[in-house]
């Protein structure tokens, strides 16, 4: 800390389940320079002001998706958000909305992980290839169909943004549907019919009311709202075509 440093007030929502009845806000004065992220701000708090503050982080460069939190009420990656954007105002940090708090800024993400597993986010080929047959081929055009949706880093900001997930925790949600779409549209994959059953449910694609905030908050410029709406069309085709096509139009 040098004498040139500016001081910003950071309020953090604290919750230590073994000693607190409910979450409360604790304020810290943090010196910073213009190149420091909000993540570096909370790291300063942990290193110099209160070592008991807990939060998740890893890569510091918007790749791992660990450090998502509510920053002044907006879900953001704290490594990709800078303290200078809020100075001279104060910053309020809270755990991601719509998830149970495990401790301080750490949420219990098991609901999301279960949903992610349920959509089988991996390529399931019609017939596995042997080593001799070589790799699964894909043209640049086939890659284009899925490239944008494959950038998801599972940071869950879209779940914190989605009012429908807040109202209906059973809703499959933006990131899981986006990744489901990414694998369904992959030319090397053959498990579409199986995944469609998840989409067709009320808790699937029909849980969405097209608010669109998921796409606003995505730090990787993925467009979950587009993936969801394309699949409303897919699910509608599946709904009606199952009466004329023997295998549900797939």
């Amino acid at each position: 800390m040098t004498s040139n440093d500016k001081i910003i007030e950071i309020e953090v929502l604290r919750y230590r389940p073994e000693q607190d009845e409910k979450p409360f806000l604790q304020s810290f004065k943090v010196p910073f320079t213009d190149d420091q992220s909000v993540l570096q701000g909370v790291q300063y708090i942990k290193d110099y002001l209160d070592g008991s503050l807990s939060f998740r982080w890893s890569c510091r460069m918007a790749i791992c998706g660990s450090c998502g939190m509510m920053i002044n009420g907006v879900p953001k990656l704290s490594c990709k958000t800078f303290l200078r954007e809020y100075y001279p105002g104060k910053i309020t940090l809270e755990a991601l909305k719509h998830f149970p708090i495990e401790k301080d800024l750490i949420i219990d993400l098991s609901d999301f992980i279960n949903k992610l597993e349920s959509i089988k986010p991996y390529i399931i080929p019609a017939a596995p290839r042997t080593l001799e047959q070589g790799e699964y081929l894909q043209t640049p055009r086939q890659l284009d169909r899925i490239a944008q949706f494959s950038s998801c880093i599972n940071c869950m900001l879209c779940y914190a943004a989605c009012p429908q997930y807040g109202l209906k925790p059973d809703y499959l949600g933006p990131a899981a549907i986006t990744l489901l779409h990414r694998y369904n549209e992959d030319n090397r994959d053959a498990a579409k019919a199986e995944r469609m059953q998840l989409l067709n449910a009320h808790e699937g694609v029909w849980g969405c009311t097209l608010v669109g905030y998921c796409s606003d908050v995505c730090p990787k410029d993925v467009d979950p709202a587009a993936a969801i709406n394309r699949n409303k069309l897919n699910s509608t085709m599946d709904y009606f075509l199952r009466f004329v096509a023997p295998r549900g139009g797939n």
């Binding site: 059953q197 808790e203 009606f240």
Partner: peptide
């Protein structure tokens, strides 16, 4: 989780 929703009926009219 996998019970099919009937929303496609109104959604297709909504979309049209």
């Amino acid at each position: 989780m996998s019970k099919r929703s009937n929303e496609p009926i109104v959604w297709s009219l909504f979309g049209a």
